[in-house]
Amino acid sequence: MAAKSRTTIIPIGPYHPLQEEPEFFKLHVEGEKVVKLEIEIGYNHRGIEKLAEDLTYDQVPFLVERICGICSTSHPFAAVQAIEDVGGVDVPERAKYIRTFLGELERIHSHLLWLGLAGHFLGFNTLWMWAWKHREPVLDTFELITGNRNHYAMFKPGGVRRDIMDEDIPTAMRLLDGLVRPLNMFIKVVLQDPVLQARTKNVGVLSYDDCVELGALGPTSRASGVPWDVRRDHPYAAYDKVDFNVITTENGDVFDKAVVRL
């Protein structure tokens, strides 16, 4: 009887969509080590491809904007570019820059959202509230530019729905300049916090090889030292005309996933 180690099953989820997302993780653990994982991800599958079959090319971007409730840029961005590719449509230079601006604004709000949730799940609710407090000016900028804090409906095949007005620029600049200090504060406070380090360093390590094998992307793979960035490797909109660094770290743990986002 003895030799075989005991496996325990720990269920995580599924949660209601308003909570941690409707996913179910069935962890098979031996002591502290996860030896196997079963994942159920389909609880909220809405058949968006099926719905899209009955829509016109002009309606599809609005539908796919609703794939994700908090990322209103990525899916319509991809959709309008696919439509433009098929139709051989050229997009005005100014619209390309506006799209890029929206994409990066969304990155900032999304990373702050991530940081807040990470704090919440670690029991650091002050970080959660602070991160989301300083995410507000980003949403205010979205409201100023697009009319909406979320679901901006800005992407149209051939361009964008609204131009950025000259008179709005000073306000947007003021809101965004105001982000610099809190962001620097987060970099300092979060990355030096001994409790956060203890909870996240060497936890949930994703190796470089696993990233490559599984095709992981974005901040997830960049935290494991995989220097992929679609904005640089396959530039779209105005990304080939703006200068930016591709941030990578080497350890692939949860801590590094925070570093690449900050």
């Binding site: 991800i41 389909g42 599958h45 058949g47 491809e49 099926k50």
Partner: peptide, 14 residues
């Protein structure tokens, strides 16, 4: 992967 385990067999939505 996405559909429920009791989705009727041989029924392919796309």
């Amino acid at each position: 992967l996405l559909l429920t385990d009791d989705w009727p067999e041989g029924n392919y939505p796309l």
